[in-house]
Nucleic acid binder design. Structure first.
Lengths: 108, 108
DNA sequence: AATAGTAGTAACAATATTGTAACTAATGAT
DNA sequence: ATCATTAGTTACAATATTGTTACTACTATT
């Protein structure tokens, strides 16, 4: 039985997708796996996401301990996001997806 | 670039989650990976899903070539669902998730 | 002829997710 | 004092997803 903020999951796959599922979390995490990025960079790279939703997703990911937010009191202000160790540990899952997609989905 | 029924994805992770993401598809596929199952068995095992949503998800999965539906004209009628080879190929992805969850999520 | 059991469907309601557009906070440079 | 720039927030709207309840089709058994 897995537990993620009060909710319980009997299926490990569902528990995992609770953290990385949805339209945006996986692409954000996958992008951050390439290195630390600023808010604006993520916004520009993850095409289609709005700033509001991006903020929400980043907050969720931070709350779940997958990423860290670092605010620099510069000007203009700079905010950097990076994976925690916990977030980095997901690379095994993403690697499996990337490998599977490359082997099994049509490439054009 | 991956293509799944007209939609294009530049991110392999997004492309994969397009097929197995959402609230129910992964648990259904994961359950079917244990063997062929009848509609009623899936309904009884995947707790919380309604019959309507289960039907919809099964149709999606069939359309995407991940499962096969076999109808037996018996009585009472019997309908069996099982993974296709394509569906079975996802086991690498599910295994990665199960392994990650077991290593990284609190067990209670 | 009515009943029971499996695998659904139909109409509708509720909830959750995502999007849009305009606005704010901070502050060094002009 | 105003402007520019980054990283947001707020109020609201639209869309998508999921759920509820009642109903259907099939036909062997009672």
């Amino acid at each position: 039985m897995m537990e993620i903020h009060e909710k319980k999951f009997d299926c490990p796959v569902t528990a995992t997708l609770e953290l990385i599922g949805g339209r945006w979390k996986a692409p954000i995490l996958f992008y951050l796996s390439k290195g630390t990025r600023r808010f604006g960079q993520i916004d520009a790279t993850i095409s289609g996401i709005s700033r509001k939703v991006l903020t929400e997703q980043l907050k969720d990911l931070e709350k779940d301990g997958l990423i860290i937010r670092e605010y620099y009191k510069e000007l203009p202000p700079r905010v950097e996001y990076s994976l925690t160790e916990f977030g980095q540990s997901l690379s095994s899952v993403f690697n499996a997806m990337v490998h599977w997609a490359n082997e099994n989905l049509v490439k054009k």
